[in-house]
Design a protein around this nucleic acid. Structure first.
Length: 469
RNA sequence: GGCCUGUUCGUCUAGGGGCCUAGGACACCGCCCUCUCACGGCGGCAACACGGGUUCGAAUCCCGUACAGGCUACCA
């Protein structure tokens, strides 16, 4: 039987790192067995239901290439949930309760026991009303257990499961019920979700049975992704928005590869693999059990490796949003494809994320150069710099600038010869020139850059810099 | 408080009784290369939470403790 899995995010703003990995594992399982990946937006809570948040989930998944076979929204399926609630009520498994939160808490405090609902209205025969919620009558004894592919066989004593709410007093169902109804209706075969859902699984199973579900789906509770303090990643305190990683220039295939690794690794232990390889090798049984830290430093390293491994054409293409697109620090007309193409290979091996590209080549494109004061001060500190600047300006004016093919040797030889004359080693000799012409102490190889920049602009910037001394 | 889950280098992990004097990757440190920054090469630091068992033998199996996390909503 082909697997039918579902990714069921609630629209809380954007898809985040943890959600993406859950989606990935689900998607992979679906793609392995000619199965179906069902995207189900869990928007039963109106406070979390905003249209742009919903489309944000779609966009993210598309960007990562995780295509879905079906897409549903729980807000469009409310009749189904209502009839399921009726069915449970007809079977005598529910009751109405109009206790307020305060009352429940007060009673819990009074009896000195643990917080939680005490079954107060269980046999009071209360009627439905504007302030009444429908609760599910849970068993008082016995144990609910299930097989979990990654955790073994967790067991939960039934007496610890309170009579939980199925339908709010405003008529809206809660996600537990909606979940079971949908999974039943959509014939979901595997429930691959985050570990945080483990404790609610007994409720799920109780409802599954009460609705005549038959054999339950296969469960796989994957470990959560945590921050450096080992807490579950949270939208408010941690950086988890996929959009922010995208805008910074992380590649989608790298993020997928990296995220897959938190909790799973291929049989041969290698760390780099493509999505297709993961589809071929992934097994839920191999997913680890302990939470993993989302280490951005390692992500960066992966991203840089991948950038370096691609063809220069691909690199140029993929850097466009930051050069000529919406993420560029200059207007579109500032970008000159030919200029960038000339230095692209040099830039490619120097950036870890695509957003770093503009700063590397800005000096070749912008009309007005901004010079970093700190870098300049440091570069002109050694004695001999003034003489060097004067001489190099003069001699480069007489040096042939060979553009076709680009030839850096003459410029290089001249500068270092002057350096020898004034007593500056190569490192110190190139520094003032680099800062004067590129504005920064770091960047692509200097002489190759100057050939691209051209004689006039180079000399102009050297004279401007000299004038500041 | 209760219930549940987890625990191998700083981090992600390999490991499923002897192949482990515990391997890889990222990070970090050193050296080499070098016009800066990177890349690359070489080398280094660094872990089986603790305590009991079981066994000829335990990172691997069992129990306990500690610590961490999750859940305990008329959120998902």
């Amino acid at each position: 039987m082909p697997p039918r899995v579902r990714f069921a995010p609630s629209p809380t703003g954007f898809l985040h790192v943890g959600g993406l990995r859950t989606a990935l594992y689900n998607w992979v399982v679906a793609r392995q067995g000619d199965g179906s990946f069902v995207l189900r937006i869990e928007d039963t809570d109106e406070a979390r239901n905003r249209e742009d948040w919903v489309t944000g989930i779609d966009e993210s998944l598309r960007w990562f290439g995780l295509d879905w076979d079906e897409r549903h929204r729980q807000s469009e399926r409310t009749e189904l949930y209502a009839s399921a609630a009726d069915e449970l009520t007809a079977a005598g498994l529910t009751y109405w309760c109009d206790c307020t939160r305060d009352e429940v808490d007060a009673r819990a405090k009074a009896r000195g026991g643990p917080p939680g609902y005490d079954g107060h209205c269980r046999d009071l025969g209360k009627a439905a009303g504007p302030s009444a919620a429908l609760r599910f009558r849970t068993p008082d004894s016995g144990t609910t257990s299930f097989v979990d592919v990654v955790r073994g066989e967790p067991a939960f004593p039934n007496d610890a499961i309170e009579d939980f709410v199925l339908v709010r007093s405003n008529g809206k169902v809660l996600f537990v019920l909606a979940n079971v109804v949908d999974d039943l209706d959509m014939r979901i075969t595997h429930l691959i979700r985050a570990e945080e859902h483990l404790p609610t699984t007994p409720k799920y199973l109780l409802l599954w049975d009460a609705l005549g579900g038959g054999p339950p789906p296969v469960f796989a509770h994957v470990p959560v992704i945590v921050n450096e303090k080992r807490q579950k990643l949270s939208k408010r305190r941690d950086r988890v928005a996929l959009e922010s990683f995208r805008d910074e220039g992380y590649l989608p295939e790298v993020m997928l590869n990296f995220l897959a690794l938190i909790g799973w690794s291929p049989p041969d232990g290698r760390e780099r693999f493509a999505l297709e390889e993961m589809v071929a090798e992934f097994r839920l049984e191999d997913v680890g059990r302990s939470p993993g830290f989302f280490d951005v430093a390692k992500l960066r390293a992966f991203n840089g490796d991948t950038i370096r491994a691609m063809t220069t054409e691909a690199f140029v293409e993929r850097a466009q949003p930051w050069l000529s697109g919406p993420l560029a620090p200059w207007p579109p007309e500032t970008y000159d494809p030919e200029v960038f193409a000339a230095v692209a290979p040099l830039v490619q091996e120097r950036v870890a994320v695509l957003s770093e590209v503009p700063a590397m080549v800005g000096f070749l494109l912008v009309p007005e150069l901004t010079v970093d004061d700190g870098d300049w001060e440091k570069a002109v500190k050694p004695a001999g710099v003034v003489a060097l600047l004067d001489q190099v300006t003069e001699r480069w004016a007489d040096t042939a600038w060979v553009h076709d093919p680009p030839t850096a040797e003459p410029l290089k030889d001249t500068l270092f010869a002057i350096g020898d004359e004034v007593g500056l080693n190569r490192k110190r000799a190139q520094a003032p020139v680099r800062v004067a012409v590129t504005g920064r102490a770091v960047g692509p190889p200097l002489f190759e850059s100057l050939v691209v920049l051209g004689r006039e602009r180079t000399l102009e910037r050297l004279r401007a810099a000299r004038a500041r001394l």
